[in-house]
Design a protein around this nucleic acid. Structure first.
Length: 238
DNA sequence: TTGTGTTTTACGACCTCC
DNA sequence: GGAGGTCGTAAAACACAA
């Protein structure tokens, strides 16, 4: 199919910079579309004719018409790089200066890249959030284990003292030896979890299996464990 | 109407490839 | 060396809230 048929005959007849008015909507954001509607209404139809830039303003900076932008968009989707032949052909078809076509492609590539960066940032942010959540989960698990260890050690001490009061030999037997390995601080082998510094974490010893995440990071309270697993598997973290 | 923030067009500097 | 690329930026065009 002839591109002239696709874009309409107005392109060929349109002198460079003569078109004006209705402009650049590239279909990437709602504000842009709204903008175009507003301007089209103001220009009385929005087909690029009879706009507010007729005969005045900076001749170096004229908005492209909707049709021109559309043609450029189609071409951009086909191929993001612009060879000389294609540029000249496109410029002739759209009634633009080849330099304008080149500039438009440069700017369009920049916008495309920027959009990709935003998406990438968003993904990384989600992954980061999930990592934070998982970290808190692990720290809470550590606290719970520390609590269990402390209780067990306390029980051992109680049994030892009970055995001593019954006049047993001072040797203490196997059980006492085993306990000896845990002499000193009951939790000396554990570092302090960072979640302990979080406000509202003073009662870590009473943590239940389901409310711990909320206590650790309140803003993530709405997440369930399955969400964490989901995020992590999604971003290849587990 | 006006001030302000966003988007689009255009340009220059610099880099890479042929 | 020329053509076309990216990057950063200026300025016009535009939308919108106050």
């Amino acid at each position: 199919m002839d591109k002239q048929q696709v874009f309409g005959s107005s392109y060929v007849d349109m002198p460079f910079f003569a078109a004006n008015g209705a402009a650049t909507a590239q279909g990437e954001s709602r504000p842009r579309a709204r903008r175009r509607r507003r301007r089209a209404a103001r220009c009385g139809g929005g087909d690029g004719d009879g706009g507010d830039m007729d005969g005045g303003g900076d001749p170096k900076k004229r908005r492209l018409t909707d049709e021109q932008v559309h043609g450029l968009e189609l071409s951009f989707r086909e191929e993001r790089k612009l060879e000389t032949g294609r540029k000249v052909h496109l410029a002739a078809e759209l009634g633009l200066d080849p330099k304008q076509v080149a500039v438009w492609f440069q700017n369009r590539r920049a916008r495309h890249k920027s959009k990709l960066m935003e998406e990438e940032f968003s993904k990384l942010k989600h992954a980061h959030d999930a990592a934070i959540l998982h970290k808190c989960h692990l720290e809470n698990e550590l606290l719970r284990l520390k609590e269990r260890l402390g209780a067990t050690e306390e029980e051992v001490r109680r049994l030892r003292s009970a055995a001593g009061s019954h006049g047993a030999s001072g040797n203490g037997g196997d059980a006492a030896d085993a306990v000896g390995a845990c002499d000193g601080s009951p939790s000396s082998s554990f570092s302090t979890g960072t979640c302990q510094q979080h406000p509202g974490f003073s009662g870590a010893g009473q943590l239940g299996p389901d409310d711990e995440l909320m206590m650790c990071v309140p803003e993530y309270g709405g997440y369930a464990d399955s969400s964490v697993v989901e995020w992590f598997s999604l971003y290849g973290l587990i």
